[in-house]
């Protein structure tokens, strides 16, 4: 296990991997990405996340988590918030 402590809560591997990827894609500091919570808005709230950036994000997630995300799994709801994306990925990784 490689769990990391952040903001007093135990973070899953998937959570820390997703934060690391968002940090790379958005060019944000670790501190800013650590402050993301379940309700932090993604696609729609972060203007830099256009369709090309989202495609890059999903492809990088697939590579680092060793999963495949199908076309029909990618909808507005999935990318609406950090919490939605994380719970989708945690379910994928566990499957």
């Amino acid at each position: 296990m490689n769990d990391t402590m952040a903001a007093g809560t135990l973070m899953s591997d998937t959570d820390s991997t997703l934060r690391a990827i968002l940090q790379d894609v958005l060019g944000l500091s670790a501190e800013r990405v650590a402050a993301f919570d379940a309700s932090t808005g993604l696609f729609g709230d972060l203007p830099e996340l256009d369709s090309m950036a989202v495609a890059g994000l999903l492809t990088e997630i697939e590579d680092r988590l060793d999963i495949v995300i199908e076309d029909d799994e990618v909808d507005g709801e999935l990318l609406e918030s950090y919490g939605n994306l994380l719970s989708f990925l945690e379910a994928k990784v566990a499957a």
Partner: peptide, 21 residues
């Protein structure tokens, strides 16, 4: 290629259209 096709599928969905990779 996969990433660029995916971007196109996502952009289409945003515009309310459906495209298949």
């Amino acid at each position: 290629l996969r990433q660029m096709i995916r971007a196109r599928v996502i952009a289409a969905r945003e515009a309310g259209e459906h495209e298949d990779s």
